[in-house]
Each structure stands twice: as structure tokens, then as C-alpha cells.
């Protein structure tokens, strides 16, 4: 009885692993293709896209073109500035809003919480036209500031929603102990609530970061200027109507993966803890 039970448990664990593994492979496959082909010559890419680079097909021409002949580094730093600044600001004010919503009883608390969460369901792109008008009339067109502001607005709803749910679960006793200790509300927030929310902060950081880094839409309409192009927009210049410079496209995509991978690794330790937090005592 316990034998069959254990056997079944092994089997189902095996099944789950098999499914997850095949999903992982499926998800990684395009990335793998991008990376291997970025190290191949143009001819080799077309001759056999699935082959690994070898002595004859190996070429760094894409990276050379991208790094030397184009403004790749500028685009890259634009993306980094926009993503990091938007992330930091949106997480900071999102966390503050979440704390206020979860901790303080005030009139219209629930309503305000709902209002702030609606943004999760309504894509911010629906407002593109008004955003464009606003940006133009604020004289912010073709600036990174415009992008940062829009991304903060885009990220806030989910951040507030997840963080306020998380903060509600921080035991009341802890905050009250601090109040009895004479700790001010600001200190409680910055020195107790924020450090304890690290798992949730990691989670929202990852979920907010990826769409910002990958976005093409807002850079295209708000900041298409040569100086303010982000990397996703910058890559488009290699994709022509008639010829596409695949070497450059693949090389810049490969390079573009790096920072997001790095940030992900930083946040993911928190993320995994965030997902499993509370699962076991």
C-alpha cells in the first residue's frame, strides 16, 4: 500500500519534472538559436540555422558591426538608465503606497486600492494618444524622462497590488512592538517593513523589469530620436524593408540579454523565496 503510494508519488513527480523540463527547453530554444547564430557568418546562418558555429562558420562580424559601427552602446545605456530608474522609483513609491493601503484605516482605502489596481487589467497602451499629447505639451518628447515616467505608471499597479497583499501578512505585533519601542512610522517602513518585504520586492522587480526592457512601443512613439533610442528600438535599424542585417540583429539581441539576465539573477533569489514564502513554516 505505502509502496504503491510512494511509487505513484515518484511517478507524478517525474511527470511534473518532465513537463517543466520540456517547457523550459521550448522557452529556451529561440534564445539558444539567437545566441548560436550571432556567432556565425551571414552565409552560415542561412545555410544551416540550427548548426552550432564551427571553425569555418564562426564569425564575430555581427558584434564588430554592432559595437564599432553603430550607436549600440548609447542605446544600451539608454535602456539601462530607463529600466533601472523606472524600477527604483516605481518600487519605492509603490511600496509606500502599498504600506499606506495595507496599514492605515482611512476613508476610501478600499476604493483607492481598487482604483490603483485597475491598471493591472487595462493596458497602458490604450492611453498612448493622450500620453503622447501630454508628453509633447510637457515638452518631454524625445527624452528618457518621458519613458521613465510612463514606465513608472505602467509598473505601479502590479507593484502596489502585490506589495500591499504581502505587507498585510506581516504580523501586526511586529509593527506594534516597534511603535511601543518609539519607532516612527517612517522608520518602521524603511527599517522593518521594507527589509521584511524583500522576497516580494524581488518578485515585483522581475515582473516589472522585463516588460520595460523589452518595450518597443513607447520608445517608438515617445522617444524615437537618435539620442534617446533604447536597445529594442535601436535594433530595428538593422531590419530593413528589403535586407535585414541578421548578424547585427542577432548580436545586439544577444548583448541585450546580458543585463536583464544579470538583474534577474540578482532578484531571482528573492523571487524564488517570494514564490515559496509561507509554503513551509
Amino acid at each position: 500500500m505505502s509502496h504503491t503510494h510512494r511509487a505513484r508519488r515518484h511517478l507524478s513527480a517525474g511527470m511534473i519534472h518532465a513537463i517543466l523540463l520540456s517547457y523550459t527547453l521550448l522557452a529556451l530554444w529561440p534564445i539558444f538559436l539567437v545566441i548560436i547564430n550571432s556567432f556565425k557568418s551571414r552565409k552560415a546562418i542561412f545555410r544551416d540555422p540550427l548548426a552550432l558555429p564551427n571553425e569555418t562558420s564562426f564569425s564575430l562580424i555581427g558584434f564588430e558591426k554592432v559595437l564599432i559601427n553603430s550607436d549600440f552602446l548609447l542605446y544600451f545605456s539608454n535602456s539601462l538608465i530607463v529600466t533601472v530608474t523606472a524600477l527604483i522609483i516605481s518600487i519605492l513609491i509603490g511600496a509606500m503606497a502599498a504600506w499606506a493601503l495595507s496599514e492605515y484605516d482611512f476613508k476610501g482605502n478600499t476604493l483607492l486600492g481598487l482604483y490603483l489596481a485597475i491598471g493591472i487589467m487595462i493596458p497602458i497602451r490604450l492611453g498612448s494618444v493622450s500620453i503622447l499629447n501630454l508628453v509633447v505639451s510637457l515638452d518631454l518628447a524625445n527624452t528618457l524622462t518621458a519613458l521613465i515616467l510612463v514606465y513608472i505608471a505602467q509598473a505601479l499597479p502590479l507593484i502596489i497590488f502585490i506589495l500591499s497583499e504581502f505587507m498585510r501578512q506581516i504580523p501586526t505585533d511586529l509593527k506594534e512592538a516597534a511603535r511601543c519601542d518609539g519607532v516612527s512610522e517612517y522608520k518602521i517602513f524603511f527599517q522593518i517593513i521594507l527589509p521584511l518585504s524583500r522576497p516580494a520586492l524581488g518578485t515585483v522587480a522581475v515582473f516589472s523589469m522585463v516588460p520595460i526592457w523589452n518595450d518597443l512601443w513607447f520608445p517608438l512613439i515617445l522617444a524615437p530620436g537618435e539620442e534617446t533610442r533604447t536597445i529594442t528600438l535601436g535594433v530595428q535599424q538593422f531590419i530593413g524593408q528589403y535586407v535585414t542585417d541578421w548578424n547585427s540583429v542577432l548580436a545586439s539581441l544577444t548583448l541585450a540579454i546580458l543585463p536583464i539576465l544579470l538583474l534577474y539573477l540578482i532578484f531571482s533569489r528573492q523571487l524564488i523565496r517570494g514564490i515559496t514564502a509561507g509554503a513551509v513554516k
Binding site: D173, A177, G182
Partner: peptide, 16 residues
């Protein structure tokens, strides 16, 4: 609470 000069010990300990 801090102006009252009290200190409280909670059932859940409430340690940071």
C-alpha cells in the same frame, strides 16, 4: 505609545 513610557511584550514575541 512612546510618550507613555510603557514597554510591551507580545505573545508572539514580535522580534524583528
Amino acid at each position: 505609545p512612546k510618550e507613555r513610557g510603557i514597554a510591551m511584550v507580545f505573545q508572539s514575541y514580535a522580534l524583528y
